[in-house]
Design a protein around this nucleic acid. Sequence first.
DNA 1: AAGATTTAACCCTACTTTGTCTTAAATTAT
DNA 2: ATAATTTAAGACAAAGTAGGGTTAAATCTT
Lengths: 175, 175
Amino acid sequence: MQEIFAQKKKSPYIADKVLRNPKNNIVMVLSKACIYGIQAAIYVASVKDVGYVSIQEISEKLNISFHFLTKVLQQLTQAGILNSYRGPKGGVALAKQSEHISLYNVIAAIDGTDIFTECMLGLPGCGIATPCPAHDSWAEMRSKLFTICHRTTLRDLAEKANQYNVRLANLPLTV
Amino acid sequence: MQEIFAQKKKSPYIADKVLRNPKNNIVMVLSKACIYGIQAAIYVASVKDVGYVSIQEISEKLNISFHFLTKVLQQLTQAGILNSYRGPKGGVALAKQSEHISLYNVIAAIDGTDIFTECMLGLPGCGIATPCPAHDSWAEMRSKLFTICHRTTLRDLAEKANQYNVRLANLPLTV
DNA sequence: AAGATTTAACCCTACTTTGTCTTAAATTAT
DNA sequence: ATAATTTAAGACAAAGTAGGGTTAAATCTT
Ligand code: SF4
Ligand code: SF4
C-alpha cells in the first residue's frame, strides 16, 4: 500500500526572493574571529624565530583586519594560549609549547565549547530525559569533532605549514 | 634541548571586556532558519494525518515565529521538499515520501551545501594545489557530516519522534 | 627624560541574521 | 459572489558579527 500525501494540485505561485541575499551564502561552523585566531596561532607557531611576533605582521601576512585580529588575539592571551608584550619588539608569542596547544584550546578560547557540547539543533537541556530524534547522529558528529580538534595540535599544523610551504592566508590565488 | 619562547615577563594588564557580549555564547553550525526548517520538516513528517499542515499550527507547536517560519518553509517548497497550498485547509505537506528526504536535502535547501564542501577555515579554492595544514582534519569532518546527513531521513527522525514522543520544540522543560 | 612602538580599551559604522508586521494572492466555504 | 483562511511577498525593526579608528598604557630606544 502506497502512502498518500497531499493530492490537490500545487499552487502555481513561485517566490523569487525569500530569505538570504544571493551574495552571502557561506555557512560557517566557526566564527570569523575563531578562524582568524586559528590562522594566527598557526602562523605564530610556524615562525622559526623565537620571540614576539607583532600583530601588525600577522595581520599583513594573513590579510586580516589589524584591529579585529588584535581583539581576537587578546582573547587567546587571556586564555593563556598566547603571551603578549607591548612596546618595540613586542607582540604575541605562544605561551606554551606548540604541541601542548590543541585546535580545541583555540576554538574554546574564542567561540567557546558549545559547539562541542551543545545541541546543533538549538534545543536546550537535551539528551537527558527526552532526546530528540536527531540526537544520536549529532552526538556522533560532536564526538568526532571533539576528537579531531583535541588531537590536532598547533605543532602538527605549523609543521605542515612549514613543510609544504602551505598557505594560511585568505589571499587571491596566484594562478 | 628545550624550546624557548618569549622569556620576558608578561604584561600585567588584563582586559575585562573584549569581543563578545556575555549573553551571546552559542556558536551554531546551522543557522536558525535551518534549524527551524529541520524541526518543521520532522514535525510535518511525523503528523499521522494525510493532508496539509498549516504553518500556524507548526509555529505554535514548535514555538517558532510564524512569519519567519513561513519564509523558511517557502524555501523548502521551492526546493521541492514541501508542497504548499493556500486557503482554508491549506498549509504545507511533504512533496516526497519521508524516507526519500534526507537531512542533507533540508540543510542544502536552506543553508546551502557549503558546509559540506567548503573549507571550515574560510579559505577559498582549497585542497587543490596547496592545501592548508588543517585540511586533512577538516576533510574528515566534512565527510562524516556528509555521511550522517545523507543517511538520516525525515522518516528516521519522524519515526523516532513518534515512537518516543520526543520533543522537537524549543519549549521550557516540564521538570 | 623624551620619543617611538606596540598592545589594550573603547567608540562607532556597516552588514547579516532574525524577527515583526502589513498587504497581496490563492483557495475554500457559505 | 462574498467572506474567511492561509501562503507569498515585501517593508521594516532588532540584534549580532565583522571591521575601522582613536586614545591610553606599557615598554624599548636614544
Ligand atoms: S536530543 Fe540531541 S539532537 Fe535533540 S535537541 Fe537535544 S542535543 Fe539536540
Ligand atoms: S586546505 Fe582544506 S582546511 Fe585548508 S583552507 Fe583549504 S579546504 Fe580549508
